[in-house]
Amino acid sequence: MRNILLVATAAVALAIPSVINAAEEHEVHLAKQEWSFNGVLGKFDKEQVQRGFQVYKDVCSACHSLQYLAFRNFEDLGYSEEQVKALAGQYEVTDGPNDEGEMFKRKAKASDHLPHPFPNDQAARAANGGALPPDLSLVTKAREGGPDYIYNLLLAYEEPPKGFELLPGLNYNKVFPGNQIAMAKQIQDGLVTYADGAPNDAAHVAKDVTAFLHWVAEPKLDARHSTGLRVLLYTLLFTVLAYLAKRRIWAKIEH
């Protein structure tokens, strides 16, 4: 067994550089949140994610797209087929060309993706003072710090410290790298009113929308966590059996 420990230590030692690499970059302190999806048994709080969708729909979707999210994906959040259709029906998408060769607008279907707020990147820049609002489909995975970073960023707007020269059109944010962000402060107390009466102070709203964005980024997280537990338990069973079998086979060998 001593050898196994040695081997395990060696494996960990080899992985150290990457772990250090992951931990090192971010110097800003992020207030770590308790997320329902953290941990071995963690999964999305579907009601929270639905509230977060309301925030996205009412606020973020004016500028930010979610190109990888399709209406059908909402079935994973507990929407019925009819509810998904009704939701999709609130949106219009461009289809075509039709028999006359024209592009046309039609109501969205379950298989459609959420429409983009702007027809193209140039239009998005033009409408936002030259800054391109990034697509948010993967944002919680694409930033160092993950969901905690997004949550903290949304709440980290404040007056710039004395002597800090803020470029015109930018906003001071103490979490954003470089502290100057094009997006103005959006999240505030009472920004949205939830149908389920959940608290809607800035912190809760930021948390809900972050949970929603993480669901969009990693929609298979629930399945991954539950499958993982079963796979690990099964592998453990095999490993124990293999150890016993190995001991039995080696019983008569002096080594």
């Binding site: 099964y234 293999a242 086979i249």
Partner: peptide, 16 residues
């Protein structure tokens, strides 16, 4: 006992 243990291990590995 050894046969049983070995067969179980092989079976668990194959099913896995």
């Amino acid at each position: 006992r050894r046969d049983f243990l070995l067969h179980t291990t092989v079976a668990v590995g194959a099913v896995g």
